[in-house]
């Protein structure tokens, strides 16, 4: 599959609707306002659109932090930047 490079900070700022903020791997629902169960689903949808691919459900159940997202992207060999 031809994955596209994912720009994580742009994607997360779109999903969680923030502008003046940088992203790091420790970010999680505790540090990003609005990261609830609904927005987590929307984030997955945006990741799939951005990467031009689909994730298996088993790989999505344990995403709790930005680091988990990067692990997911690594697993699928999807290029990304924070």
């Amino acid at each position: 599959m031809n994955f596209r490079k994912v720009k994580l900070s742009g994607l997360l700022s779109k999903v969680f609707n923030f502008t003046e903020r940088s992203i790091n791997k420790n970010d999680s629902p505790e540090t990003i306002a609005g990261w609830d169960s609904f927005k987590a689903l929307i984030m997955i949808q945006e990741l799939e659109i951005a990467a031009n691919g689909k994730f298996e459900i088993e790989d999505l159940k344990d995403i709790r932090t930005v680091e988990d997202i990067t692990r997911l992207l690594d697993k699928y060999k999807i290029p990304y930047e924070l």
Binding site: S37, L41, I44
Partner: peptide
């Protein structure tokens, strides 16, 4: 789709 299992969202947000 998988969104049903993840959050009972039977129609995907797409």
């Amino acid at each position: 789709t998988k969104y049903k299992e993840l959050g009972d969202m039977r129609l995907a947000p797409d």
